[in-house]
Lab assay of single mutants.
Amino acid sequence: MISLIAALAVDRVIGMENAMPWNLPADLAWFKRNTLNKPVIMGRHTWESIGRPLPGRKNIILSSQPGTDDRVTWVKSVDEAIAACGDVPEIMVIGGGRVYEQFLPKAQKLYLTHIDAEVEGDTHFPDYEPDDWESVFSEFHDADAQNSHSYCFEILERR
Rank of each mutant, 00 (worst) to 15 (best):
T73D: 03
N18V: 02
V88K: 10
H45M: 03
S150H: 05
V78N: 14
A83N: 10
L156K: 15
L4N: 05
T35C: 03
V72D: 12
K38Y: 12
F153A: 04
A145F: 10
T113C: 06
E90L: 02
T73Y: 09
R44G: 14
L36G: 09
P53F: 12
L104G: 03
D142E: 10
L36V: 02
Y128V: 06
D87I: 11
L36Y: 08
L110N: 01
L156Q: 13
P25L: 06
K106W: 11
S135M: 09
T123W: 01
L54P: 01
A6W: 00
V119E: 15
E48C: 13
D69Q: 05
E80W: 04
V93P: 02
E48Y: 12
A117T: 04
A145Y: 07
F137A: 11
G15E: 00
V99Q: 01
A83P: 11
L54M: 10
A26H: 06
D11C: 03
K109Q: 05
L112E: 00
I155G: 03
C85H: 15
K58R: 07
S3F: 01
L28W: 00
C152V: 09
I82C: 07
N147H: 04
K58T: 04
R33P: 02
A9L: 06
Y128P: 07
A145T: 06
R159D: 13
F137W: 06
P130E: 13
L156I: 10
S77C: 06
T123V: 06
R71S: 11
R33A: 10
Y128A: 03
S135Y: 09
G43A: 01
W74Y: 12
I5H: 00
A84K: 05
Y128T: 06
E17R: 00
C85E: 05
E48T: 07
L62Q: 04
A26T: 02
C152F: 09
P55N: 12
G15P: 01
M16L: 05
D69M: 05
K38S: 13
Y151L: 08
D144Y: 03
D122M: 01
P66T: 06
E101C: 08
G56Y: 10
I61Y: 03
S49L: 01
D70V: 07
V119F: 00
I91H: 04
I61W: 01
Q146E: 07
M42Q: 13
D69I: 06
P21S: 07
